[in-house]
Amino acid sequence: MPVPPEENIVRAICSDKWDGERIAPSLFVGSDTSVSRLAIIPLEEHWNLFRSYVEKPPERILMLIGEINVGKLQEIGRKHKSAVELTVEPKPESRNLAHAEIPQNITRGLANKICPELKLHHPPS
């Protein structure tokens, strides 16, 4: 069962994809994009969870967490000039039970529509 449109998902944004000024659109380019479901694990717990497996090498630092509503993501896909029916499929993993994937191929043009819609969360001080 795909993740319902009411849910919000998050994606880790590490230092290779954020330089303090811009977010790399490649954050969403390609297929099988990893995301995580806030309905399963709350945002505040995602900081330590993501850090436990994305900060490799240690120079790769979790800088931000980007949040988007699944329904909004799907709307962006449908409105794109080459419309895509985006879905979010639950793919729980032992390291992250909230893990899910967007299986469809996301082009750079579509990624450029998704990134500005992300709600950006900074690490808690």
Partner: peptide, 13 residues
Amino acid sequence: QFRNYYGPGWGEG
């Protein structure tokens, strides 16, 4: 950084 520290399998593997 990219060419000196990011070896094969960086990130989530």
